[in-house]
Design a protein around this nucleic acid. Structure first.
Lengths: 189, 189
DNA sequence: AGTAACTCTTACATGTATGTAAGATATCCG
DNA sequence: CGGATATCTTACATACATGTAAGAGTTACT
């Protein structure tokens, strides 16, 4: 049963509309065995989402996003999200099913991100010109872009993470958080 | 003929994996009539991509991206792309088919964007910390995010465009283009 | 040893999409 | 008028995925 779930996570991560036949093959069982545990395809999908959501929540709780300076918390959130995306490529396809599903899947991460943005903006650590809801969408969108770059082999995992960090901080209008700086003249925000 | 192509653009824009039955219905013809013009589904897809690509190239040529300051050209490119995305929602689903298709579809826009980034970075108008290829990916990713916000009704078209302008300029490390003065008209073509 | 849970094999039914084929009808143009 | 083109109707074949069903084999636990 657990093997089937893991297989489903892997397979749907590569191809969201893969058949149960594929999932069963990867799990090393037959299609009917899958049906023995999950009566319909949708139930299996639900189980996958539930499991992944639980892992996400646990990982985000460890990041303690409500504590410390907002920019540092943002980077913790970024690193955690990036690691989750690496472990669960299925998150890349969050928009493939119904819009309702999309919302549900990203809800745990986007909700915490939203609160973090609000906190940072109110403390003056993030620029206030852009609406928090938009920044949430942009964060996820740019994260997906980075994931796609890695998936296609155009960037390494490490390169993408570095680029992500810089990009997100810029986007949020945060002071650069002490990273290797080159000869770029600092503009005051 | 042309009606079928237009219908395909519309239908595939809403649902990339719609059946030819749907396309035919929207076009006001029967499925067999579609087959009379496009022997396979793939041929129809190719025709759609070809047509849209031509329109994109024409629109981008009008934007004169090689002339004037890079940040201004970037905004022209952004406005043009945004308008194209509005007219051809099918561009939102550029990653749904094979990876090869994705590259092909975005090539005309990403190639010109790449050259523009290089030009701006070499002239010192854009920050040099982020690789041009990454900025291309981030540009498209954030653009898609904006498109999704509009499609879901969470932002208006105008709100999204404004947020996009600010976000892209920040991301590219460009000096904020004089937008406090209202004489910078987005529609420059 | 015996029972229960799990899994396997095989088979069937259904739905949907793709693609092919043949013959009828309409329309436009020379 | 006559022929070419485009379209329509109806029908068939195929492929694939989903879901159901029955019966047999395997494993593990008691």
């Amino acid at each position: 049963m657990a093997a089937i779930l893991q297989a489903a996570i892997r397979v749907f991560g590569e191809r969201p509309d893969a058949s149960l036949e594929n999932v069963a093959a990867v799990a090393g069982v037959t299609r009917q065995t899958v049906y023995a545990h999950f009566p319909t395809r949708e139930k299996l999908l639900d189980a996958v989402i539930d499991l992944v959501t639980k892992e996400i929540l646990a990982a985000l709780d460890e990041a303690a996003l409500d504590e410390g300076p907002a920019p540092a918390a943002l980077l913790r959130l970024l690193d955690t999200s990036w690691r989750l995306l690496e472990n669960y490529p299925v998150l890349m396809h969050a928009g493939s099913a119904t819009p309702q599903d999309e919302v549900d899947r990203h809800e745990p991460i986007s909700d915490r991100l939203y609160r973090l943005i609000r906190r940072g903006q109110e403390a003056g650590e993030f620029d206030r010109d852009l609406a928090p809801t938009w920044l949430v969408a942009a964060f996820i969108g740019i994260g997906h872009a980075a994931g796609a770059e890695v998936a296609s082999g155009r960037m390494s995992h490490a390169e993408a993470l570095t680029a992500l960090r810089v990009s997100i901080l810029r986007l949020f209008g945060a002071e650069p958080v002490r990273q290797s700086r080159k000869d770029s003249d600092p503009r005051s925000a």
